[in-house]
Design a binder for these strands. Structure first.
Lengths: 189, 189
DNA sequence: CCAGTAAGTTAGTACTTAATCACTAACTAC
DNA sequence: GTAGTTAGTGATTAAGTACTAACTTACTGG
């Protein structure tokens, strides 16, 4: 048994939860599965977090932070087409190294409807706020062009969906993605 | 009690299931919720379908059919930019009248990972096949241009995500969507 | 009118799972 | 060393849920 500070454990839980929730979504993931991945007993999760929902929220929030940071760092000091390429490349790297982040984002989005249904309006608001922060993050480097920003994010969402569907990297759906992204994602000033 | 033929009932179940699964996803939707919406007892669902999974599959398949048919009919006899506008308008109409179809699509996509995990490789394959049929459906009217097709579908996926997140129609994220779709989605021949 | 069939229900089972409670083991300061 | 705190577990529970089996009600053809 490896003892950790509660704060460190919470970190591990967030990482494990991201992977598990990314696969199964909120309802398709048991707290036991998360606990197993962390290497800790299931009841202990409820010492670290007030409930399952709080774990999901923490994982979702973290996921948004990291995505925003990824784009922010990639575009640092760059503008226009250069920023576009830098951010696209950064995202490509995330796809390869942390696909769970894309899937977790999808799970966040689809979880909004259910949360709204059960009276939780804060969750949807938080997700939308995260999206707008992401929007603003890429907006400025892309020349403060709304059309360009929307286009960039549209390709991002398509990528998320294709990854979720499990299309292998060599599949033809990926063709026309990057050339096209460069082409149709050109900057009009 | 209104009696129906089993076939008609199955139809009702598929429609009800689409709405329920669209909100809650596979695991977040109980067969009881579906039965309630149909107006039938919960166990009777298992006479009409072999199990919950079969209901989800039927709803998902139907959803894909209808989306493909929507584009197919909208683009009938049109090519290039005209087809693009016709299909975009048709999709706009679906957003307003049948948002559950967009949400169900999202739920399908995110369900692939979990299905794969539990050894069901056919589901993912079916979803990908549906996607490719959709791809081919819009590919030809858009001038058999892979970049154009990808672009069109990218905007579609962005729309799906924004709808899932619950952005109201007047929100600024929608600005730059249609102008931009017209603009960046222009046809290069 | 009645026999067969198809539509539908009520009651119940087996199982999963989020959350609680009482308890134990390890670290830390004095 | 020992007192107090912090990390962690085992046992349990209550609620929910997919699915089964046995029974009932309505329609239909001869």
């Amino acid at each position: 048994m490896v003892r950790m500070s509660a704060e460190e454990r919470r970190e591990s839980v967030i990482r494990a939860a991201t992977i598990e929730f990314a696969r199964g979504g909120y309802h398709g993931t048991s707290t036991e599965a998360i606990a197993k991945r962390v290497g800790v007993s299931q009841p202990y999760l409820f010492r670290l977090f007030p409930g399952k929902k709080a774990i999901f929220l923490a994982a979702a929030a973290r996921c948004v932070e990291e995505t925003i940071r990824t784009f922010d760092e990639a575009a640092e000091g760059l503008r226009g087409e250069e920023a576009l390429h830098a951010m696209a490349n950064a995202y490509t790297k995330v796809i390869a190294e942390h696909p769970e982040r894309l899937l977790m984002q999808m799970q966040m989005y689809v979880a909004v409807g259910a949360a709204e249904e059960e009276g939780d309006h804060e969750f949807g608001a938080a997700v939308r706020e995260g999206w707008m922060r992401l929007w603003d993050t890429v907006h400025l480097p892309l020349g403060a062009d709304a059309g360009e920003t929307t286009n960039f994010l549209a390709y991002g969402m398509l990528i998320n969906c294709l990854v979720a569907m499990g299309f292998p990297p060599e599949h033809r759906v990926w063709e026309g993605m990057y050339p096209s992204a460069r082409d149709t994602g050109r900057l009009r000033k």
